[in-house]
């Protein structure tokens, strides 16, 4: 949080059919539906999140990610960073207050990978869902499905990883927590953190810009990951891989697809990172183990299926 960027705050995901998507994110992942707007967008969040929403679904004829937003400590920091982003050379668009319901103005910029990101400081806080702030119970009753606790991070595919690292590290204050290095010395994957989490945003090299690999949601325990897998089978939901463990970040995980083909992850555990830590490095020759610690072989679908 060196530059005042706090956390991943929201992701807007395009879906082919809103009713199917809401059923998936609400009934299966267990996110809470918080609101809808006059564009037909649906706003959801995990029950532990204090801000009003973290996932926005928009119906479109092509799936993928519209943008990901990071919340900052103050409006002054947003102004300061807006200047630095422009100086870095980012294309910038100012999104007015209220364009996302109950969210303040956002500064949108395009990263060298082609993805749209936003920084903002103001969003209505409704508190954790179903539990108070004073003498709170451990968890609320009435959660559905996987009972995902929060939107955690995204993994995105695109070109220009070095420039993107410079932008996130030097302008926005992220640290490089983990990386994958090819034999020629080129960094082909970078996991960046703005907190002590192993990743708040991750990028993998890909020629085509602006591709979406997955949005990830946090669960509390490995047992919850296994229960998530049970629920995927019960609902005949398309599973990508898992339950398993990653070498990178060492998180325990399962991947699956929403009804529009956008990949989701639910995971638990994993490493932590402080600003004085050296980045963890995986050699590309060990990529199979880096991605799937138990299988130790690459799964082509995981690497190439994108929206």
């Amino acid at each position: 949080m060196k530059k005042g960027v706090m956390r991943p705050g929201h992701v807007q995901i395009r879906v082919l059919d809103m009713d199917e998507a809401v059923k998936h994110y609400k009934d299966l992942l267990g996110l809470i539906e918080m609101d809808r707007d006059d564009q037909g967008r649906v706003y959801l969040k995990g029950w532990t999140e204090v801000d009003k929403f973290s996932v926005v679904l928009r119906e479109a004829d092509e799936p993928g990610m519209d943008f990901m937003g990071f919340k900052c400590l103050s409006e002054e920091i947003v102004d300061q960073l807006r200047g630095e982003l422009a100086e870095f050379g980012c294309e910038i668009e100012d999104m007015p207050e209220g364009e996302l319901k109950d969210c303040g103005r956002r500064v949108r910029f395009i990263a060298p990978t082609g993805h749209a990101f936003e920084i903002y400081a103001t969003k209505k806080q409704t508190g954790k869902w179903g539990v108070g702030n004073r003498n709170p119970e451990a968890w609320p009753r009435g959660l559905e499905g996987m009972a995902a606790t929060r939107f955690d991070h995204c993994l995105l595919y695109g070109p220009n990883l070095d420039e993107t690292l410079n932008l996130f590290r030097d302008v926005l204050g992220f640290d490089l927590a983990e990386q994958v290095i090819a034999p020629d010395g080129k960094r082909v994957a970078q996991f960046l953190t703005i907190s002590t989490k192993a990743h708040d945003i991750a990028f993998i090299y890909h020629e085509e810009p602006a591709k979406f690999h997955h949005a990830s949601f946090f669960l509390e325990t490995w047992q919850d990951v296994l229960k998530a897998a049970d629920l995927l089978s019960m609902t005949d939901t398309s599973i990508d891989i898992g339950p398993t463990r990653h070498g990178l970040t060492h998180g325990q995980t399962i991947y699956f697809f929403d009804p529009s083909g956008n990949r989701n992850e639910v995971f638990t555990g994993g490493d932590y990172h402080y600003p004085d830590h050296e980045p963890v490095t995986w050699d590309a020759e060990e990529l199979g183990k880096a991605i799937f610690y138990h299988d130790r072989v690459l799964n082509e679908r995981f690497l190439t299926v994108l929206t």
């Binding site: 082919l16 799936p63 398309s238 990508d240 697809f257 929403d258 009804p259 529009s260 083909g261 956008n262 990949r263 679908r301 190439t304 299926v305 994108l306 929206t307």
Partner: peptide
Amino acid sequence: PVGCRCGGCGF
């Protein structure tokens, strides 16, 4: 080839 199985990835 099998991809997302949901009409999204084109595999």
